[in-house]
Simulated assay, not measured.
Amino acid sequence: MCLLILLLILGPRAVIVVWWLLAPVTWSVAFGGTLLLPILGFLILPWTTLMYVLVAPGGVVGVDFLWLALALFADIASHAGGNVYRRRRA
């Protein structure tokens, strides 16, 4: 439990790396064995990638789209927040 909380504090990319190392089969099932999409997700949309891995093995239906939309919103908000901070420093 402490490890999970520490990883969430460190950010989604740390969770992706640890989860990928501990459960590679889950990632393989979610992304169909390709490495390109998880790597792009790691770089660009880490929250959406994590949420997709959570909901994809059972199929993305119903409320799963809501969870994916919330994760996408979190990714967009983090990118937008970074731009606002960068403008304040300049």
Rank of each mutant, 00 (worst) to 15 (best):
L54S: 12
M51H: 07
D75G: 02
L54Y: 13
V61W: 11
T48A: 03
L66I: 12
V55L: 09
F65V: 06
I44P: 01
W67V: 01
I44V: 15
G62S: 02
L70M: 11
G58E: 15
V55F: 04
V63H: 11
V53T: 08
S78L: 11
A77D: 07
L72E: 00
V55W: 06
G59E: 03
A56D: 08
G62I: 01
L72V: 06
V63N: 10
S78F: 08
L72N: 03
G62K: 00
L50E: 06
F65L: 10
L54E: 12
L66A: 13
M51F: 07
L45N: 14
G58A: 13
L72A: 14
V60W: 03
L45D: 10
G58R: 12
L45R: 14
D64C: 08
P57M: 13
T48R: 04
A56L: 07
S78C: 14
A74H: 00
V63K: 06
A74T: 04
W47S: 14
V61R: 14
L72G: 07
P57H: 12
A69Q: 02
P46K: 09
L72C: 08
M51R: 15
Y52T: 01
L45K: 14
V63G: 09
L43T: 00
G59R: 03
A77C: 13
I76Y: 12
L54N: 11
L72Y: 02
T49D: 01
I76N: 07
L68Y: 00
P46I: 02
W47H: 15
W47L: 09
L50D: 03
P57L: 08
L50P: 06
A56H: 09
G58Q: 15
Y52H: 05
V60C: 07
